[in-house]
Amino acid sequence: MKNFAIFVALALASTSAVADSPAPTVTFRGTTYRLSRTSGNEYDFTPAEQTPPSADVLTLLVLSRIKDGEALADLANRTLSKLKDTKATIVRTNSVPASAQKPAEHFMAVVIPSPDALQFGASRYVLVGGEGVEMIYMHTIHGNAVGNEMSRWLDKNGADVEQKLMQLDASSMMPTTPAAAQAPADALPPGTIQKGSLANPKLISDAMQGVAGKAATLGCEKIDSRQPYVVAKPQGPAGAQVWREKWLVTCAGKTYPIDIRFNQSGADAADWTIE
């Protein structure tokens, strides 16, 4: 499936392979998929009862450099543009709007031609535990004139693929390695519980004004990088939840912690306060 590389060409980071781990399984559309191959940040799953070459592949890409919704959307847009350049047929695109606690998710479905096959590809972009994740489902129909067959398959399966892929729990596809199981508890800064921010891109952009102002009072003239961490998860009723984060900003080689309190004000808005 050489055209599969189009989906992964813009992956920005990698993770170590898990050759010694028991092969996990994941259920997708009523079929059990088993981990069949790992390569860096790529985990490929194929149906347990399907013999190679597999017509169906479910792939997880862990994009450890993607830390927020803005970067996630940019990656999805660049991938879509790359696919258009290859003359792929865009079947559908969709985005789930961001909320005060959750960045937007993005979905695309395309049909990619090749000399001896047609490939349907569906891809979902989402943040999991503060890191970007791309989940890809590929269905291949081999042959020289299979357009009508692919159209019939799409009519029957396209909507269900999108629904099930958007519902799929990415964490269920992540193999557990001995190294991961023994990761030190101090991998997170003291007092934090999760890497990444719960704020959406707009709220992050707004809060950066206050973060920059606070950093300036600490001697930071220009922020080189930032890494948010969750200190306390949202509490309170829907529409009025409160949560706290600690952002570590780096300036000229020095790191400064900035504490932020977020207050939800309605279903799709929130305010911030530098503490």
Rank of each mutant, 00 (worst) to 15 (best):
A5R: 07
G213A: 03
T27L: 00
I112P: 07
V133G: 02
G40W: 10
I223K: 02
L127C: 01
C251M: 06
A238R: 00
D56N: 12
Q101M: 07
G196W: 10
I260V: 15
D224M: 08
A122F: 13
T32R: 08
A109S: 04
V133D: 01
T46E: 12
A104R: 05
N157Q: 15
N157A: 12
D186K: 08
P97I: 03
S64L: 07
D169N: 08
N94F: 08
T27F: 00
W243S: 10
V18L: 09
K246T: 04
T89M: 09
Q209M: 11
N41H: 12
A183V: 15
L12C: 13
K254S: 15
T177W: 14
A23K: 14
S36D: 05
I6V: 07
K214D: 13
D259K: 04
Y256C: 11
F28W: 05
I193M: 14
A269H: 15
W243N: 09
P237E: 10
P175D: 14
S21K: 00
W272E: 08
Y43E: 05
S81H: 14
A122E: 06
V230R: 00
D160Q: 12
E105K: 02
S172E: 13
M174V: 10
A170N: 03
I258G: 02
S64A: 14
G132F: 11
A215E: 02
P47T: 05
A207R: 09
L80V: 04
P52L: 08
I66C: 04
Q182A: 11
V110N: 00
D155R: 13
S95G: 13
M208P: 05
A179M: 06
A145F: 12
A187C: 13
T250D: 14
G121Y: 05
A9S: 06
E221K: 14
N144Y: 12
S39W: 02
P257M: 07
G147S: 09
P175F: 09
K164C: 09
F7E: 01
N77F: 13
L154R: 06
P175A: 11
R244T: 12
S225L: 14
F107P: 01
M173Q: 00
V133M: 03
I136L: 12
M150V: 14
A19E: 11
P237Q: 06
G121L: 07
Y33N: 08
A185W: 06
R152H: 11
G40M: 04
G147T: 05
A88N: 03
V211Q: 03
I136D: 13
V57D: 02
L75S: 10
V96G: 02
M174Y: 09
V62W: 05
S197V: 03
Q119N: 10
P257Y: 11
P228L: 05
P189W: 15
P189L: 06
A181R: 05
E162S: 02
Q209I: 09
P103L: 05
G196A: 08
A238G: 07
T59I: 09
T15P: 03
P24N: 03
I66G: 01
D169T: 08
A76V: 01
F262L: 03
G69S: 04
A109H: 00
S172G: 10
Q167N: 12
K82T: 13
L218M: 14
A238C: 04
L198K: 15
I112H: 05
T38Y: 02
W243I: 07
L165Q: 01
M150T: 09
Q235E: 14
L63T: 01
P115K: 01
A17K: 11
V96W: 02
A73C: 04
A122P: 08
